[in-house]
Structures are given as structure tokens and as C-alpha cells.
Design a protein around this nucleic acid. Structure first.
Length: 157
DNA sequence: AGCAAGATGGAC
DNA sequence: TCCATCTTGCTC
């Protein structure tokens, strides 16, 4: 199965009041402080999961939230896990939808993304990227650290 | 030990 | 616009 990453948000270790790492390592966010290239999954609003890719060096506490994906194949498999989706654009057009569609939960927290189960590839595509404020946060609202493929239908909201 | 808020999604 | 739903982490 192949999915394009079409929307993300960056969360930093310093001067970022919206980052889960803002107050240091805790049981929930400890994966953020581990080595880059691992999956940080958290549970929110009593019902949803969201996933991040840990970045920067060990001990920092930086990650990139996966907000939307464009499934390139296996749409029906994903749709089974996203029964509310009315078309392929709605399969993974939100951070919790990405986790639901791919069955990513806390079981996958800490998953090594340099392994064989799930990984990232640079396919040398360089679409136009736009950026703006992050969504759903209370602090550090001004930081333009949400990035998305310009004009893509699968981008959230 | 108690409590408020949360990196959302879906229904109304 | 509003609510479901529950864990986390801060505060007392």
C-alpha cells in the first residue's frame, strides 16, 4: 500500500507552547524524545489517535504530525476502516482519520519507521507547498508550521 | 485526589 | 455549532 503525505504540522521542542514536549518528557510523549524516524502515537478526545514522525536528535522532543494522506491504492481496504468516508478524498483527510484508516493505535507507538512494516520514501516529487497556522491548538497559534500540498483535495478542513 | 483541557470528527 | 468520551498531567 502506498500513500502520499500531503499535509503535516511541525511541533518543536523550544518556544512551541502547542507541542506535547513543551513540559519535558512524560510517559505519554517519551517517544518524542527518542531517536528520529520512530512513530509517536497519542490518544485524544477520548476516542481518536494521531500519529507523528519523530525528528531531530535524541533528547530533543520534536515531531511532525501526519494530518492528511492521499491513498494511491487499496482504497477499499482503507474504506472498511473509514465507513464514514464518502469518497477516496475523505479516507485520510485528517490526523485521526489517517490513524483510523491504517489501524494505527497506541500499539504502534514507538514503531521504527526505518523497518519493514511502515516507512517513508522520498520519491523525488516536489509539489508546490503552502504553509499556515496549525489547527486545533490553543498556544503558539501564530507559528505557520502547518504545511500542505497546494490545492490538494485531500487536505483537511 | 480531583479536575480541566485536549495537535478531532461527525451529526445537527 | 455542539457534543461524545477518557487520558494526561497539572494543581491542590
Amino acid at each position: 500500500m502506498i500513500l502520499r503525505v500531503i499535509e503535516v504540522e511541525a511541533y518543536m521542542d523550544v518556544d512551541d507552547g502547542a507541542s506535547h514536549s513543551r513540559n519535558g518528557a512524560t510517559p505519554r510523549n517519551q517517544v518524542m524524545f527518542g531517536p528520529a524516524g520512530h512513530l509517536y502515537v497519542y490518544f485524544v478526545y477520548g476516542m481518536h489517535h494521531c500519529m507523528n514522525v519523530v525528528t531531530e536528535s535524541t533528547g530533543r522532543g520534536c515531531a511532525v504530525l501526519i494530518r492528511a494522506l492521499e491513498p494511491m491504492n487499496h482504497h477499499s481496504w482503507l474504506a472498511q476502516r473509514r465507513p464514514k468516508a464518502r469518497n477516496n478524498d475523505q479516507l485520510c483527510n485528517g490526523p485521526a482519520k489517517c490513524c483510523a484508516a491504517l489501524s494505527v493505535s497506541l500499539n504502534e507507538n514507538g514503531l521504527d519507521l526505518t523497518g519493514t512494516e511502515m516507512w517513508l520514501e522520498d520519491r523525488n516529487e516536489r509539489p508546490l507547498i503552502e504553509s499556515g497556522p496549525r489547527i486545533g491548538i490553543r498556544h503558539s497559534k501564530a507559528l505557520p508550521w502547518r504545511f500542505w500540498v497546494a490545492g490538494h483535495r485531500g487536505v483537511s478542513r
